[in-house]
Simulated assay, not measured.
Amino acid sequence: MEAKNIVVIGSLNFDIIVKQQRLPDKGETFIADELIQGPGGKGANQAAQCAKLGLPTIMVGKVGDDRFGNALVGSLSAVGVNTSYIKRLGSTGMGIVHVMPDGDYYSTIVKGANDLITLQDIDEINDVLVSSSFIVLQQEIPEQVIEYIISKYEHTDTIIVLNNAPARIVKESILKAVDILVVNETEASFMVGKPMDSVDTAINIGKELLPLTGGMVVITLGKEGSVVVTSSHCEFVPAENVQAVDATGAGDSFIGALIYALSEGLSINQCMRFATHVSAVTVTKEGGQHSFPTQRDLESVLFKN
Score class of each variant (00 low, 15 high):
24 P>K: 00
25 D>P: 01
26 K>Y: 14
27 G>D: 14
28 E>T: 15
28 E>K: 11
30 F>E: 14
31 I>T: 15
31 I>S: 09
31 I>K: 10
32 A>C: 13
32 A>F: 09
33 D>P: 04
33 D>A: 14
33 D>C: 01
34 E>V: 08
34 E>M: 11
34 E>H: 12
35 L>N: 04
39 P>A: 15
41 G>K: 04
45 N>H: 08
45 N>A: 12
46 Q>V: 09
46 Q>S: 11
47 A>I: 11
48 A>S: 11
48 A>Q: 03
49 Q>I: 14
49 Q>H: 00
51 A>R: 04
53 L>Q: 07
53 L>K: 06
53 L>P: 04
53 L>E: 06
54 G>V: 13
56 P>T: 11
57 T>P: 11
58 I>D: 02
59 M>D: 00
60 V>P: 01
60 V>A: 07
63 V>G: 03
63 V>A: 10
63 V>L: 05
65 D>N: 15
68 F>S: 12
70 N>C: 12
70 N>S: 10
71 A>W: 02
74 G>Q: 09
75 S>H: 08
75 S>G: 07
76 L>N: 00
80 G>M: 09
80 G>L: 11
83 T>H: 01
83 T>A: 03
84 S>P: 03
84 S>N: 10
86 I>V: 14
89 L>C: 08
89 L>Q: 10
89 L>T: 08
89 L>S: 07
91 S>W: 01
91 S>H: 08
91 S>P: 02
91 S>Q: 11
92 T>M: 02
95 G>F: 00
99 V>Y: 03
99 V>W: 04
102 D>Q: 02
102 D>W: 02
102 D>K: 03
103 G>P: 00
